[in-house]
């Protein structure tokens, strides 16, 4: 189990020639991922979800807070141990083409990390080659077909599978997939999502799925949790289908409202709405951080800052003074309410 405890991260932003403005990417985020579990981080771009994923994978530092992996606090661990633990958390980038070295063949990209492991554990060259083929098979590729190709010879979906295979070379316990299908052809997306589910089931690898696409989040984290992040704060956190079908936070509701409805196959939720204006990242907002865009905001929302509080009967965490279930999610047109 991985626990994030009150992680804070501030970037020094530059707004003009002399003025600097701090960007609060994360303002104290606490969450946990079960071993082999699934967690979807949901939010608009600039909400801090990508920073959170990078911190998890050890590619970004945090200002305060702690990460506890299976009981070991990273703050307390020596650097070698910390690197070893965080290497088990692998980030899958959004753009698979950028994530692969363009001048190295797929074989080289896969065998290099395997050779490193072989050196550490005393395995031989045959193991490296065999393992590379094995990993490609696991991610649904034919080794003979792709091994000696360059990234530019592959399709987007194949590249992302190679990137996942490369992440598997270190036997990770967690894959952090940051918008991992948004740059892939529509007809190939579901295949990648299915692969992530498959890896969870077969290899017991936990998946943290970072996305703005609620439907994809539902597919990957159906038996897990959704954590909705806005401006570096958790706004709603609960079981995936509960959050999707009975959201209580207006920000979650606006995200769900924004999902295009396949009219004919689905009916839009009756309470569907659009937030008042666009996200302006630099803007200082007093009170609730969503109050400037929230159509339901009242006096108190502009003045006081709501805390993330549990809602007992829904087993949910929520950051809103007035948690209200609104029916904004599309339902199947065939009549039956979805489970």
């Amino acid at each position: 189990m991985i626990e994030l405890i009150d992680i804070k991260k501030t970037f020094q932003g530059r707004t003009g020639m002399l003025s600097t403005a701090d960007v609060h990417a994360l303002r104290g985020v606490s969450l946990s991922i079960e071993n082999g579990g699934a967690l979807a981080l949901l939010g608009e771009s600039g909400c801090g979800k990508t920073t959170l994923g990078r911190i998890l994978a050890g590619l970004e530092t945090y200002d305060s807070g702690d990460i506890v992996i299976d009981g070991t606090s990273l703050n307390g661990a020596p650097k070698g141990e910390r690197d070893r633990l965080q290497r088990k958390i692998q980030l899958i980038h959004q753009d698979p083409y950028a994530a692969l070295n363009p001048v190295r063949t797929i074989e080289k990209s896969l065998t290099a990390p395997l050779k490193l492991r072989a050196k550490q554990s005393g395995k031989d060259k045959g193991w490296v080659e065999q393992r590379a083929r094995e990993l490609l098979t696991i991610v649904g590729l034919d080794p003979d077909e792709v091994l000696y190709k360059y990234p530019h010879n592959l399709s987007g979906g194949q590249r992302q599978r190679v990137v996942i295979a490369r992440a598997l070379t270190v036997d990770p316990t967690v894959l952090v997939a940051d918008e991992a299908v948004s740059m892939i052809d529509v007809s190939l997306r579901l295949g990648i999502l299915q692969l992530l589910n498959d890896l969870r089931r077969r290899l017991k690898i936990a998946v943290v799925f970072i996305t703005h696409d609620v439907a994809a989040a539902r597919y990957v984290a159906l038996d897990g949790d959704i954590c909705v992040i806005y401006r570096g704060e958790i706004f709603e956190y609960g079981r995936t289908d509960d959050v999707i079908h009975a959201p209580v936070n207006p920000y979650t509701q606006s995200l769900l409202s924004a999902v295009p409805v396949l009219v004919g196959l689905e009916r839009p939720g009756p309470d569907r709405f659009i937030p008042l204006e666009e996200l302006v990242t630099g803007r200082a907002v007093s009170g609730c951080l969503f109050s400037d865009r929230c159509p339901f905001a009242v006096e108190v929302c502009h003045q006081d800052h709501p805390d993330l509080l549990p809602i007992e009967e829904l087993s949910r965490l929520n950051r809103c003074f007035f948690p209200t279930v609104r029916h904004v999610t599309a339902v199947s047109a065939s009549g039956e309410a979805s489970a």
């Binding site: 007809s187 190939l188 999502l193 199947s332 979805s338």
Partner: peptide, 24 residues
């Protein structure tokens, strides 16, 4: 048909979503 079925949706049963095999 396959394209529509390959779209994960917020409503309904997710097991109905089926990936499209092969590549364009």
């Amino acid at each position: 048909r396959a394209l529509i079925r390959s779209i994960p949706r917020l409503s309904g049963d997710l097991s109905e979503a089926v990936p499209l095999p092969g590549l364009p």
